[in-house]
């Protein structure tokens, strides 16, 4: 007698699918739990953490934003190997506004977010005319070239960078600013990707020919997706400039490209929540593994390979499945 595994939806999933969900607390909790729990954790946790882990939490949120930004692009069919470009652009713009023009952070950060995003979009727009890997190639080399240029021409402080930025009033302000934006971006973008607009973006990834044949300008939609994504990355960079009170060449370093990508791939790309989950796992993990130094990056590299090849759906998908469905063994007739 052979058996196979069968997956069926949990009863509560079916019960809470429609307006009936409002009939009992249990169903409402089932629906709201997965959304409220992480939100509550992000909001309450900072109050109980020590100074060191508060900084780690900022880092988690920043990398989560970069990972979400990566995933947003990936869902539109663009694989970025250079999230550092978005991050660094935001960081430098905010730093320059603060350093040279004396703008306070609460003006510099929003301007840097939009301006940084727009600059990245402008640089990368020509590549959007091409399919597939061209985008990856260009995003990989541009931040690395920018580093060399800053190093060689000594603009914006050169290798020393710019320091002495105005900090934000307190660590808690920093945390609540970044987690607030993170939650907003996460739930907002998840909603957006579920709309018909999001369907068009995903359609471009799966079959650009079919989307074009529907009379839709894929170039224009890709530009929009790129702008949304690079703005998110630029915000993360702009914020960090004021957290570190410093901006310099390291903002274009490969770390800011690799960790977000690893987070999105480990958490599972295509869900945005998976990207955030990946950051929540990987950033504290890499803090804990500080002792092994450079081996961490080797580990991220291996994560990228193993998850892409063997577990392409990622962790979030697995958790989601276990939450909504149960598995059982059933006999199959021969």
């Amino acid at each position: 007698m052979k058996k196979r595994r069968e997956r069926i939806d949990r009863g509560i999933k079916a019960r809470s699918e429609d307006v009936y969900a409002l009939s009992s607390w249990r169903e409402m909790l089932y629906l709201a739990g997965p959304r409220l729990l992480p939100a509550a954790a992000f909001l309450l946790l900072p109050l109980f953490l020590g100074a060191y882990w508060q900084k780690v939490m900022i880092s988690v949120a920043v990398f989560a934003l970069l990972a979400i930004s990566w995933d947003m692009l990936a869902q539109t069919g663009m694989i970025s190997l250079g999230q550092a470009l978005f991050f660094g652009m935001g960081a430098y713009v905010s730093g320059i506004l603060n350093f040279y023009f004396g703008m306070p952070p609460w003006i510099a950060i929003p301007i840097a977010t939009v301006l940084g995003g727009a600059l990245c979009t402008l640089i990368l727009t020509p590549v959007l005319r091409l399919r597939g890997i061209y985008f990856s190639m260009v995003t990989l080399i541009i931040p690395l070239m920018l580093v060399r240029i800053i190093e060689a021409t000594k603009i914006f402080g050169g290798t020393e960078g710019l320091s002495g930025m105005t900090p934000l009033p307190s660590t808690l302000t920093e945390i609540y600013l970044v987690t607030g934006v993170l939650l907003g971006v996460l739930f907002g973008l998840r909603r957006l990707m579920e709309t018909d607009y999001g369907l068009v973006l995903k359609g471009i990834r799966d079959n650009d020919r079919s989307v074009t044949n529907a009379g839709i300008d894929i170039f224009w939609f890709k530009t929009q997706a790129l702008f949304i994504s690079s703005t998110i990355g630029a915000f993360a960079g702009a914020l960090m400039t004021h957290v570190y009170m410093f901006v310099g060449m390291p903002v274009f370093a490969l770390d800011y490209s690799i960790l977000p990508m690893a987070a999105a791939v480990v958490g599972g790309s295509g869900t945005l929540a998976g990207a955030a989950l990946g950051a929540v796992i990987l950033v504290p993990l890499s803090e804990a593994l500080r002792g092994i130094g450079g081996l961490r990056i080797v580990m991220y590299g291996l994560f990228l390979v193993v998850f892409t090849v063997a577990v392409p759906e990622g962790l979030f998908d697995y958790i989601q499945r276990r939450y909504h469905q149960m598995e059982r063994w059933v006999e199959i007739d021969q």
Binding site: A74, G301, L304, A310
Partner: peptide, 29 residues
Amino acid sequence: VLLRVRGQALSEVIATFGIGLSILELFRY
């Protein structure tokens, strides 16, 4: 590695990049 994701250009990019990264960072370590 690549045969398993053949035809999915985006996965190929991530996989080869991951391999390269691991090799280079291992040497650095």
